[in-house]
Write a protein that binds this DNA or RNA. Structure first.
Lengths: 257, 257
DNA sequence: CGTGGATTTGAATCACCTCAAAGGTCGTGG
DNA sequence: CCACGACCTTTGAGGTGATTCAAATCCACG
């Protein structure tokens, strides 16, 4: 019983059954979003469901031939790029319903590595079939491009974070980002389990592990959060939003000034 | 005569004529890439060519309704996002033939602002028509997705740069990136004119202006580069590649180890 | 030729990093 | 069930690369 019942990862839709997009509880968040039933069936036909991959295992590796994109069904992964000196930079964490691998679209091989943070199941979508289907189903094509657009905006927000924010602002932004993503999935926005280690967080945020730890402690002393290992409770989300520099949504608001 | 003949920006294809994709010298780099002649004509039909925008003018602004994507015909622009505290983070510089605005695809308004770094002409592609055409021309759809994939990989490289590289490595990476992009366009890889100010470079690289200036002088003292205002000559590209941590191409190589 | 902005240079400061070590946690096997 | 070891997390002390502040110099442009 390592994960308490509050943990989002403990809820695994479709475990043990042969899953289909039509019956998947994530289809309103995932690629089938906005697809008609008949279209969803065609997408469903090309999707391959593999056995779970264990914590620490790779889904694909930087440099391998680009063959498929993946949707996370349960669990969580991190994706990272390798610098030539061997250092890794985590570019994203991926929770259930999120799509991985589209960034390799143009290239013939994956530009990054995907590693499971815990036991994870994914839906594999082979590129050739997806490509064909994208030409035949306008809704799917739009959804793919929307996904890529979202990824670009995420990465550009990270550039701003890495370039302009201090340690506390980075951690606050990170916690709220995770919070929002869990909320979208119907979980608590304030009480959840971080699937990644402190080291992963520090790498992602461009800080030293020790700094993450110190900021967490400081946030606890100021009663902004409570932590117990990977479990975390956001106690003062307003203050965190303030600190993160996110009044509500950072982009796409009418500017009036 | 502010720009010498070596300057890439001094060569303006199609100036003064009513331009078309079919005759544009950039069509092998731009969106029409890999389009059949008949398809290119259909794309050409929906493209609007406006009057030049002057240095400092905005092409579009964060928060405005998302209506069009743009291809740079001549000149250069920067795109940047605004943090809630008003600070701007430059997310990219855009030279001739490059596409701007696709990152807004999902959203209903532009997630960033585009400002001209010099007098610039663009081709405007209204979204509704582009969207329709993308459903009808598989090659165009693929090209759009390739462009977005390239953008994602660029941004993820920037994340690595901002998170892991020191000032010298950042500047070296930046100079080589610009160099490669000019080279693709048929200009010198070692002798070119930087269209952006030092302030813009510093913002983009997540450093203070003073740091950029100091690194430039250090590079000059070590005979890696020569600078004369915005003109720059790369004297020792091997050393710069070494320093940037780019042996050749950073991603997408077979890893053997 | 003068003005305002951009660039360069210098000196002092600081936020975060590195190094070092103590505590915790988790999985494993006796 | 408990002990062990490996790894992760936390805390402390000291160092540093880049920043900030200040000022001189250069440059484009009217």
């Amino acid at each position: 019983m390592k994960t308490p019942s509050t943990s989002p990862t403990s809820s695994t839709p479709l475990r043990g059954t042969q899953p289909h997009c039509q019956t998947c509880s994530l289809n309103a968040l995932c690629l089938p979003l906005s697809l008609k039933d008949t279209d969803m069936e065609r997408l469903d036909d090309i999707i391959r469901r593999g056995r779970p991959i264990q914590k620490g295992q790779l889904l694909f590796q930087q440099g391998e031939t680009f063959q498929s994109v993946f949707a996370v069904r349960t669990g969580a992964l991190k994706t990272y790029t390798l610098a030539s000196n061997g250092e890794e930079q985590i570019t994203g964490f991926h929770l259930a319903s999120e799509l991985i691998g589209l960034s390799g679209y143009e290239a013939d091989c994956y530009p990054l590595t995907a590693k499971a943070l815990e036991t994870t199941t994914v839906c594999e979508i082979p590129l050739p079939q997806l490509d064909t289907l994208a030409d035949e189903l306008p809704d799917l094509r739009k959804q793919l491009m929307r996904t890529m657009g979202t990824e670009i905006r995420h990465d550009q927000n990270m550039m701003l974070l890495l370039s302009k924010k201090n340690a506390e602002e980075r951690v606050a932004s990170f916690l709220l980002d995770i919070s929002q993503r869990y909320q979208r999935r119907g979980f608590s926005a304030s009480h959840f389990r971080l699937p990644m280690s402190r080291v992963d967080i520090s790498n992602y945020l461009g800080l030293a592990v020790e700094t993450i730890s110190r900021v967490f402690t400081r946030f606890q002393n100021n009663e902004l959060i409570e932590t117990q290992g990977k479990e975390i409770i956001l106690r003062d989300m307003d203050a965190l939003y303030e600190m993160a520099g996110l009044v509500s949504s950072t982009h796409c608001e009418k500017h009036d000034e």
